[in-house]
Write a protein that binds this DNA or RNA. Sequence first.
DNA 1: CTGAAAGCGCTAACAC
DNA 2: GTGTTAGCGCTTTCAG
Lengths: 342, 342
Amino acid sequence: MRRPTLEDVARRAGVSRSTVSRVINGEPGVSAEVAERARKAVAELGYVPNQAARRLVTHRSGAVAVVVTEPRRRLFVDPVFDGLLHGIRGELLRHGAQLVLLFVEEDDDYARVAHFLSGGHVDGALLFSLRADDPLPGMIDRLDLPAVFGGRPVLGPGRWGRGHTYVGADDRGGAAEAVRHLRSLGRRRIGTITGPLDQVSSLDRLDGYRDVLPDAPPRMVVEGDYSREGGADAMAVLLGRCPDLDAVFVASDKMASGALQVLRERGRAVPEDVAVVGFDDLASIAEATDPPLTTVRQDTEEMGRLMARLLFDDTRDDRGAPAGRAPASVVTPTRLVLRKSA
Amino acid sequence: MRRPTLEDVARRAGVSRSTVSRVINGEPGVSAEVAERARKAVAELGYVPNQAARRLVTHRSGAVAVVVTEPRRRLFVDPVFDGLLHGIRGELLRHGAQLVLLFVEEDDDYARVAHFLSGGHVDGALLFSLRADDPLPGMIDRLDLPAVFGGRPVLGPGRWGRGHTYVGADDRGGAAEAVRHLRSLGRRRIGTITGPLDQVSSLDRLDGYRDVLPDAPPRMVVEGDYSREGGADAMAVLLGRCPDLDAVFVASDKMASGALQVLRERGRAVPEDVAVVGFDDLASIAEATDPPLTTVRQDTEEMGRLMARLLFDDTRDDRGAPAGRAPASVVTPTRLVLRKSA
DNA sequence: CTGAAAGCGCTAACAC
DNA sequence: GTGTTAGCGCTTTCAG
């Protein structure tokens, strides 16, 4: 009733452990006939390799950690993260790697996560570092573990995360394109509703807005919180400050849907009176609003896929090239999707 | 530059491997003085136990799998699952266990998951089996691995999953309570919008409706898909079939919000003309609708916590009691939350 | 209370 | 091509 070991399989096939091991790991140099016999024994015994033993000697775990700093459980209802995770999953699958999910919620968790990551449980880590003052990037530096960030990480106050590999959307460029579009429509009083300004992506999107509108007065900028309600509130504020506003760039679709509602309630026609552009292109939102939302598309699934791929690029040369430099980061392009709101 | 091993620590502390091992694992029978010396050496060397080695000998992995059958990537935008996962996470944390996330999307994945689960990577599994014909319960039977299901599992056509441990909300009772409430309000033409009827929970909620209204004609029952749009469409159908409907029990808050919208568009006042009760009590939806939604609350976080707890109950007696019977399943109570819609 | 020694199940040199 | 032999780093009897 004991789980069969390599030894058992070998005995049954009448060969040695090493040979069976070679067959199982698909190594060359085993005659077809012997290989067949070994495979048969494996099947008959229902042999499944003991991973712990394998790891012990290979020093590889076959698993990848995904570290998420979950802002009060909202992460898992986030379609952006959903897309990311989906892309990651697909790529991990191709590599036969497992996904170990690590949450950071309280401050204690950083130590816990660091401890886990340094425990050899995983071959690499994919981390989402949203906040501008996130300790994660600093932490990973001390760990000597292949890692790829989702979103450009920031290291301490003002220090950009050079040396960290990351995959991020072109937040700044996308935002700039959105605002440029608004201006090309002849709009002159263009406001913006930003995400929480302690997040890198929010900051980048705001920078994109400023790139195009360097002289926009501060009152045209209102900080939101990426929620629908936050978007609605921010829109109300914006309208109060600038009643003759004729366009607004909203840094997320969710906020945009809230903004649209307020605009409607206040009797502003969209896009006639006020043109609106969102960000994310979440089908469930952007296609369902009234009018459908013009927005900046980011391909979250592709981003996830890329994160995993970069990680594996870094990870696999453990036998061979001396670990190499961290692979280059990639900024994925965004694309303006024109619907009816602008 | 090699990672320090127990041996290194032992040498530094001037004791034996065994002693250090005991200290690390908090075993009794080590003098305070020696223990202190060992701890000091651990700290100085930054020693972190090699999990693979430990697992190899203990036969325990310290990890738990969470298996989700992800219906076309919608799972991660599901607040119910979010709550569940949150509860699970909390409990795993208490036990110092890791969470390995396994997705089932394509048919291939079942084999992959089964293989993984039987590979000794995890000490147990938490599985969400939504569909009535889900292969997961059958699969787990052949695996000899402690497992707890989220939602009552069903084994093949008509065979209820006896012998499987699960944690599920009292879908049937909750639905019945909702309908009973509607009736107590004097409503007589009570329809229902169900979830996808290939899901156990949907079926159970419908049964609850029927428990109270055994004579409701089939036209009063419309199948939805748990989405907002699905709820809207179903509401339209229901209204078409029965224009003088005076109440509706909707099997999810998301669908209820869609239904509410249609009701409003058709000029039906809620709750005056049509009373509406939802299911789930997702704060983000139920409190935000107009009018706020009366709904059946299920405590998803508690359910998640319970799942993990039951799993550990089953899991830990590997040294001691002979594995024991699978622990009892638990059906968590639901509670009607009265707001304004009914 | 502490240490010595025997593996856990596997891979990887190294012989044959 | 295939087998032999060392370990990987840890826990766990069993002596002392």
